[in-house]
Design a protein around this nucleic acid. Structure first.
Length: 568
RNA sequence: GGCCCCAUCGUCUAGUCAGGUCCAGGACGCCAGGUUUUCAUCCUGGUAACGCGGGUUCGAAUCCCGCUGGGGUCACCA
């Protein structure tokens, strides 16, 4: 077990370019858990040095996603919520600000230091020139590395051109970086030979630092001791270590986590949603946009260009209009789809990490954040990539909804979800909400699945459509047939007490017994009359949901519509 | 292609560091039964894996090498 020493400080550092990705959520979860486990600090930092892609709205969205998951950060941007007056974030140690775009001066001081020491230098090639060089190298099957052309210039000339205001980037001089060994807490020793590192850019033409530079400076200045991140960063780490050496910084503990793949075995990405929606639009042969948030031109451009992406809201609108289910990728996708935050946390924690065994030695799978905060250990992070199995997530979600809550808890959760994502449903159910919640609970795996099994309760009595198969089987066949049964049942229903669904069902059962009838003989005809189909929630719940008046109306309608057929 | 990482049931994984108790355990899925007024829930059982080839060893899922396969990354994105 890797016991933390000193004060542990972990950080989650997303770039605010959209909702929190499920992979990012796992990174945040593990960073949070390690900080909690070791009594340390979990810090949140916004890496918004890409001016074009970053947005304030995205930053807020990510904060909201983290808060929804239940991952509270000790330091970082503040977020006050109505349900939590103390809020999240803050800067007790005075190491902020936590938006990199507000830290330019700090980065520049360190870049100047590097330039003075000859460990960094301005370079004047344009992006186009570099691109051409890259392509040429590719054509000749050479490995491309920046050719250090700017170092051919004298220091005086470089300084003069910079002073004259010529556009330039600053590159790190990796000439003397030497072999770099990373002591990774998950992967062990990873060595990168001397000369593999190129003179990468540390400050862009627009004066903003690149990720590699800002991350190193901030981790040092903010006292970060443990960097947990995805394995896609492994090849960046030598750059960071080289920079840390050059700047005289500490090297934090690195722990590179396995990646999360989609069903197809590739890295899970937001692009999948576009692809999925695009296929649907194509097969539907849509010429004009079905939603106001997307213009016709935009739709066409997007349909024709695989690389183009719609934004989050546009995709949601489109999916809604076309009745599509898009593959969930971001935390917000799962939230909308009716997954519980604690289930998401439980499930993603299992992707690339294993909890300790139960006391009896059996494997543990179901646990909450509190447990994770006490049990998380970097030593139990795995090394191989994990496929995201939606079936299993669904099973976990269903288990919590169906077996680990009571009706009241479920009702409250479902109610909150409806208010946020399906206010129409909540309104349509009105004071039948608790009844509906009870009726659907064993039938739903996500909160979003509640609507379908209640369809019969949301339409008017004369809008019931009869499933012919069910009619044949339960109303027309058998001796006596279902219609005859319905006629007898009508009186029973008429005198029944609808106040309590359970009692109502019990009374029907008693009646069936008295008359020496199987419950199936009684329930199925009633079901068809009430819902049009042979499938519905429990009979008592179904009746109560429809109500006595409507139940009688539906029975009468069914009787009159079908009696002709029966006799004919 | 260069560099780097990885490799147990279809999937997530336990077991690998300290080789024998593993003809490999759990979970999801799937299949078959059972309970039940339908569906769902629930219960029981079953299916199914150490990628291949060499070593080392009395003995290898576990250690070593090679191969194969998968993945990441090669931006003035993070």
């Amino acid at each position: 077990m890797s016991e933390p020493t000193d004060q542990v400080i972990t950080r989650f550092a997303p770039s605010p370019t959209g909702h929190l990705h499920i992979g990012g959520a796992r990174t945040a979860l593990f960073c949070w858990a390690w900080a909690r486990r070791s009594g340390g600090t979990f810090l949140l930092r916004m890496e918004d040095t890409d001016r074009a892609r970053s947005s304030e709205a995205s930053g807020r969205a990510i904060l909201a996603d983290l808060a929804w998951l239940g991952l509270a950060w000790d330091e970082g941007p503040t977020l006050t919520r109505s349900d939590d007056p103390t809020g999240l974030g803050g800067d007790p140690r005075g190491v902020g600000p936590f938006f990199q775009s507000q830290r330019l001066e700090t980065y520049n001081q360190h870049i100047d230091r590097l330039i003075e020491k000859g460990l960094a230098y301005p370079a004047f090639e344009t992006p186009e020139e570099l691109d051409a060089q890259r392509k040429a190298a590719l054509a000749e099957k050479r490995t491309y590395r920046y050719d250090r052309a700017a170092l051919e210039l004298s220091a005086e000339e470089r300084a003069a051109r910079v002073a004259a205001g010529e556009a330039h980037v600053v590159r790190f001089n990796a000439a003397n970086a030497g072999e770099i060994m990373i002591q990774d807490a998950v992967l062990g020793e990873v060595r990168i030979a001397d000369g593999e590192l190129e003179d990468f850019v540390i400050r862009k033409q627009d004066g903003f630092p690149t990720y590699h530079f800002s991350v190193v400076v901030d981790d040092e200045l903010m006292g970060v001791t443990h960097v947990l991140r995805g394995q896609e960063h492994l090849s960046n780490t030598p750059k960071h270590v080289a920079l840390q050496r050059a700047l005289g910084f500490r090297v934090p503990v690195y722990a590179h986590m396995p990646l999360i793949f989609n069903e197809k075995g590739a890295k899970m990405s937001k692009r999948e949603r576009d692809q999925s929606a695009r296929e649907a639009v194509r097969s539907a042969g849509l010429a004009s946009s079905p939603v106001s948030s997307i213009s016709d031109d935009e739709l066409k451009g997007w349909t024709d260009d695989k690389k183009r992406q719609l934004d989050h809201e546009q995709l949601e609108d489109l999916a809604g209009a076309l009745d599509l289910t898009l593959p969930e990728v971001s935390v917000d996708d799962f939230r909308r789809a009716g997954y519980l935050p604690e289930v998401i946390c439980n499930f993603i924690a299992l992707l690339g990490w294993t909890p300790s065994k139960n006391d009896d030695g059996s494997d543990r799978e179901v646990f909450d954040l509190e447990f994770l905060a006490s049990d998380f250990d970097i030593a139990r992070i795995g090394r191989s990539n994990a496929r995201f199995d939606r079936n299993k997530l669904m099973a976990f979600n269903a288990d919590v909804l169906q077996n680990r809550m009571n009706d009241a808890e479920f009702g409250a959760r479902w109610h909150a979800w409806c208010e946020e994502h399906d206010p129409e449903l909540g309104a349509a159910l009105g004071d039948r909400f608790d009844l509906a919640a009870r009726a659907i609970r064993p039938r739903v795996r996500t909160l979003a699945e509640g609507r379908a099994p209640l369809a019969f309760a949301l339409i008017s009595d004369d809008a019931i459509e009869y499933d012919e198969k069910a009619v044949k089987k339960f109303l027309l066949k058998g001796e006596p047939n279902g219609l005859a049964m319905l006629e007898r049942l009508r009186g029973v229903i008429e005198s029944a007490d609808f106040a309590d669904a359970e009692a109502l069902e019990a009374s029907l059962k008693a009646w069936a017994e008295e008359n020496e009838l199987g419950m199936g003989k009684v329930a199925q005809p009633l079901r068809v009359a009430l819902t049009g189909a042979g499938v519905s929630p429990g009979l008592g719940d179904t009746l109560a949901l429809v109500g006595k008046q409507s139940s009688l109306a539906r029975i009468d309608r069914c009787l009159s519509a079908r009696s002709a057929e029966a006799s004919g």
